[in-house]
Each structure stands twice: as C-alpha cells, then as structure tokens.
Nucleic acid binder design. Structure first.
Length: 597
DNA sequence: AGAAAGATGAACGGTTTG
DNA sequence: CAAACCGTTCATCTTTCT
C-alpha cells in the first residue's frame, strides 16, 4: 500500500451503491438469470460530464478541496446548489466509498463502464436512494416505461432497443450484442451485461462490504450512515479495520492445493453447486493482478476459489499464476521425468561461470521480452575493470540487472538472456516446439512468454487421467502454443476432439505442427477469435461429438501484468476483458450440456 | 532505387506483497 | 524497505516487395 495520504483518486468512480447491493446478490452465471436495472438511456457521457453547475464559484470551492469535477457536478445535482453542507456530505461519502486503491484503476474513456459511470451521474434512480429522501423530485421519471418496439426492425436492432428499454445504455447493449452475437437471446444479453456490470461494481463493493452491511440498505438513516462511513474510514486509516479480511490473499508458500514435493494436508474441497461439472474447466491468469481482479474472476467462475501456484516448485523458473478450476484435487501426480528444479541443473553449462556472489538458484518469470546484447556488453565491461572480486556496489548492480532480465552466466564476465529453446525446456515444451515454420525469434519469445508452464498445468490436470481412459474432448480457449494440449498429451490422456481458439496464426501453426508430429489420432479444429464463437457454433460442435469434457483457457494478461506500464487497466482492459468471453463460452457450454441431458 | 514491412533495441513506473 | 512483474511504444536498422 503506498502512502497516498491526500491523494485519494476521486476520478473514475463508479458510484452505484444501492444498485450494487442488488447486483451483488445475483449470481452472474446461468443463462436464465435476467438482470434488469432501472436506468434510462442517456446519450454520451462526455455531454453529461461537461454539463457543469450554473454557479462556477461553487465548483471552484470544492475543486479547491481536492474533489474531482465529475464528483462535484454529481453531488450538486444530487443536493441542489443551495445546500453546500449536504453537497460536502455527499462528496465525503463518495470519497469514503471510494477509498480503495484499486479504483485508481482507470476505465477507458470510451469503455461502456466509463459511460455507465458518467451516465449514472445523471440518473437519480441509479443512485443511493437514501439521498433522495430530502430532495424534492419535481421530475420523477419512471424506469419502467417501455417504448414500443418496431417489429419491422432487424433482429439485432430489436435486441438493442429491447435492452435500451430495459434500462441499459447504448454502449452496454451494443457491446453485449457484439460479444454474444446478433442472434443471442435477450436473456443471454442481459446476463452478459449484468455480468459485466458486476465486474465493475464488485471491486468497490468488496472493499466496502462491512460499512454497507452495518448500515443496512433501507435508507432513512442518512445521518447515521454518513457518520458510520466516516468513522469506518477513519478507523481504516488508523489500521483498526483490516480490510484485507475479505479480499483474496496469496498463499505463502504459493503452492495451491499442493505441489509434488510438498503435498498439502488438504485433499478435499467442497465446490459450489453451480461450479460442478460437466464440463471440467480450468482457467489461468497472472497471480499478481491488480487488487480485486481475482475476486471478480472467482465470482464469475461460480465462486470457485483460485488456486495460486508458483511454478518455481515445479521447475527452475518462477511463474506465479492463479488457477480457477473445478477439477478434483486428490490423486494428482507430476509429469515424469521431473524437470530440473535449479538453474544449475537446468543449465549446467552456466555453472562454470557462475560467481559465488550470485546467489540465485531459480530464474524469475519468463517474460515476452529479453535483455539486450548492449546491456550484457555494458555489464561485461563493468566487470572487467575489476578482478575476480568486484566491489559490492558493482555486484549489486549486476545482480539487479540479472534478476530484472533473467540473465545467466555463459562465460567469464559474460551474461546472456535465455535462448528460445531454453524457454521451451524450462516451460516444459518439447525442444524446438516453437521453432521454424516462419516464426521469428522475437515472436518465439513472445509466444513462450505468454504460455503455461506445462508441468504445473499437467499436475493439476493429472486428476483427469483415471476419469478419461479413452480420452476427452477439449475446448481450448486462448490456446497459444498449446500448453494445455501438450500437458494432456504428456499425461497420456488421449485427445479426441480439440476445438482450439487462438488469434495468432503463428501460434496456430505451432499447435498444428505439434499435432501432426505427435501423431494425434483425434481431431483438431482451429478457430481464430473467441468473440466469434457463439452458441450456434458450440452446439454444432457439441452435437457432432457429444459435448466438451474440459474447457481450458488463460485469457490475456496484458492489462493485468505488472510489467505493463502503459495500460495496466485491470480486467476491463482492451485485451484482458476477453476473460468475459471465457466465462461466456464456459457458461454457454454448461447450458447446452444441461439441455442435452 | 525506393517504399513497405519486419525485426531489433532501448526507454518507459507503478502496484502489490512480504 | 526490497523485490518481482505472461508489457507497450517508438526509433532505427534490416529485409522484402514493387
């Protein structure tokens, strides 16, 4: 936690409150749930955010206190311009509700969520109703008014209009249609939007659960509510309340339900009813995501708690990942032979040149970019100035660069980044898995850096071996270079039908090439875009071979990963929001399989 | 030869955790 | 406090296409 004393970020605030309580109680899954909300359609968020109060001094007054313009405009709308006291109260409340660092997390200006944020500012019904108690509402609109829908419109426009009349914004509606496909049912669309909304609201809610519950949701207690919120906020500042209580924590050591060398006592867990298969599912992403992300992911994936595992317990390189799955956790076994677990064993040629003051025994996470030749050259020159025993400050500098870039010793004073085939070996892929076929060295690093650690994933999937002696049907989303396929194959689980969805042609080529080289007897179907995979396509596939036994996917981490300095926008980021497609497709498969039974 | 496309190298903080 | 982190973007060099 950084000491951001005065710097609460009042911008990009999702100020739904009561609505969150409603949404929170709705399980984001199941095709049948209809999430409706009271809101009307407002055009574009920019227009509303630029519509300031008529009294500029008032705005200036609160701006001077450090509140954002957006919030001040909202507070003034809520309370009227006359009552500065109640405006301040509202602003304090927003601040208290917003006093959580994960909301520094900006939503994109053009994202549906952001539109929602801004839109809500104009919509009193979307807002905490207790604030309305003492406000005379001359113009009380009704969220239940439904306009006639012209039956001559094309299907997707009818869907849009229906959603609009249900209170969704145009942005939400069109995003949902885009994601779910034009022929999706209204129920599917609302389900999707409700799910997406939860993603936005949950993070706030989660942090604030305590004060909200303690104050009740019934309104009429405005004074007490504000008081308690303030009190709670102060306590939290003083550390009297541990807000981490409800937030998912990373285990230490990060071994999940156990690793081959350190089996946990826990051999059983009770899955939520909705999570139980078929199909089995296995979802993966970076463990060190921004706060709240794993709470959201877990909530979407049927409230299954993530299993956080660092692959350094499986191989010579760290890889901290979270896995949400409904697999059995007993009778796991590792791939054999066990991979080398230290740098020394994995890269024996480096041993000779490894100085005693470099204490590393494990490599850090393999990423998509590597250190440059210039850097290793600079280090070599810096080291050559000293004899066998460089001074401490030089050692410190060299070690820092080694850790940052995963450099290894390949000669006297000579460091180098790992080669692509070393990436392959460390990650558990066959040698030359990503080599040839026109792929460049840079792209090999990129594909490998984005991949599973095969031994780790295989250990988790090993529980399936006894259950599918005749093989299984696999739906592999965001397949990449086929980590899941390789893991299952190495486990000796036959692959019957594999539907693999991967956007990169180079990666698809790698998997196809591997598929042929390993003489697979099954059927490999490649698709490019998860967003194009709709219910019809799925039903087609599942009808032909009788459903999927396992759905695996690690959705893009671009907007979650710590290395991203530019667009670490969280789960709503441009690429990482594809998580919702994983959920959408998983939920669709579950529904279709229920229907088929 | 010149444009277009591709590959490489380097600079770019901040969040989260123990 | 240190330590870690499935990354992005731009400039420049290299290769390929016209």
């Amino acid at each position: 936690m950084d000491g951001n004393a005065s710097g609460e970020d009042y911008e990009n605030i999702d100020w739904d409150t009561e609505d969150e309580l409603e949404i929170q109680n709705i399980v984001p899954s199941t095709c049948s749930n209809l999430v409706t909300r009271n809101a009307s359609i407002v055009g574009n968020g920019e227009a509303s955010s630029s519509a300031g109060p008529s009294n500029p001094n008032l705005l200036q007054h609160f701006l001077g206190m450090g509140f954002s313009e957006q919030l001040i405009v909202k507070a003034i709308k809520e309370n009227g311009e006359a009552n500065t006291e109640s405006i301040l109260e509202s602003l304090l409340t927003y601040a208290a509700l917003e006093d959580s660092p994960d909301e520094l997390n900006p939503c994109h200006l053009n994202s549906p969520q952001q539109q929602q944020c801004v839109d809500n500012g104009q919509l009193s019904s979307d807002y905490d109703e207790s604030f309305l108690d003492d406000i005379s509402e001359s113009d009380s609109w009704s969220g239940s008014e439904v306009a006639e829908i012209d039956s001559s419109l094309p299907e997707h426009e009818k869907a849009l209009l229906s959603l609009a009349n249900m209170g969704y914004t145009v942005e939400e509606a069109s995003a949902a249609v885009a994601r779910c496909g034009p022929e999706a049912t209204i129920a599917e669309l609302t389900d999707f939007i409700g799910a997406a909304q939860m993603a936005k609201t949950e993070d706030v809610f989660f942090e604030e659960e305590k004060p909200k519950i303690s104050i009740g949701a019934n309104g009429g207690l405005k004074k007490r509510k504000l008081y308690e919120l303030e009190l709670w906020k102060r306590k939290k500042r003083k550390g009297l309340i541990n807000e981490e209580d409800d937030v998912l924590r990373l285990p230490n050591p990060m071994i999940g339900f156990g690793v081959p060398t350190d089996t946990m006592v826990v051999t059983h867990r009770t899955l939520p009813e909705a999570a139980i298969g078929p199909p089995f599912f296995y979802y993966e992403n970076v463990a060190l995501a921004p706060k709240g992300v794993w709470d959201t992911i877990s909530r979407f994936l049927y409230d299954v708690q993530p299993e956080f595992v660092d692959s350094k317990y499986f191989c010579a390189t760290a890889r901290k990942r979270g896995y949400v799955h409904n697999l059995p956790i007993h009778n796991r076994f590792p791939l054999l032979p066990l991979p080398p677990r230290t740098i020394n064993d994995a890269l024996p040629l480096t041993k000779r040149w490894w100085p005693e003051w470099d204490k590393r025994t494990k490599l850090n996470c393999l990423q998509t970019v590597i250190g440059s030749a210039k850097l290793t050259d600079r280090i070599r020159k810096a080291l050559e100035k000293w004899g066998d025993d460089p001074p401490l400050h030089v050692q410190k500098y060299v070690i820092e660069e080694c850790r940052k870039w995963n450099l290894v010793w390949v000669g006297k004073n000579k460091l180098a980044p790992l080669e692509p085939d070393e990436f392959e070996m460390l990650l558990g892929f066959p040698r030359n898995h990503t080599r040839g076929g026109g792929i460049s060295r840079t792209d090999r690093y990129k594909s490998l850096g984005n991949s599973f650690q095969v031994d780790t994933v295989a250990y988790h999937l090993s529980a399936l071996k006894d259950m599918f002696p005749n093989g299984l049907n696999l739906l592999s989303l965001f397949s990449g270079i086929g980590g899941a396929e390789v893991a299952l194959h190495r486990l000796g689980i036959p692959l019957k039908n594999v539907v693999s969805v991967e956007i990169s042609e180079a990666n698809r080529d790698i998997v196809r090439s591997w598929w042929e080289q390993t003489n697979q007897k099954g059927n490999l179907i490649h698709l490019a875009d998860v967003q194009q995979l709709n219910g019809d396509r799925l039903e087609q596939f599942m009808g032909s071979f009788g459903g999927f036994d396992l759905i695996v996917g690690g959705s893009p981490c671009n907007n979650l990963a710590g290395s991203n300095r530019v667009s670490r926008d969280g789960l709503e980021g441009e690429q990482s929001s594809l998580f919702y497609d994983y959920f959408r497709i998983l939920d669709l498969v579950k529904c279709i399989m229920n229907k088929q039974q």
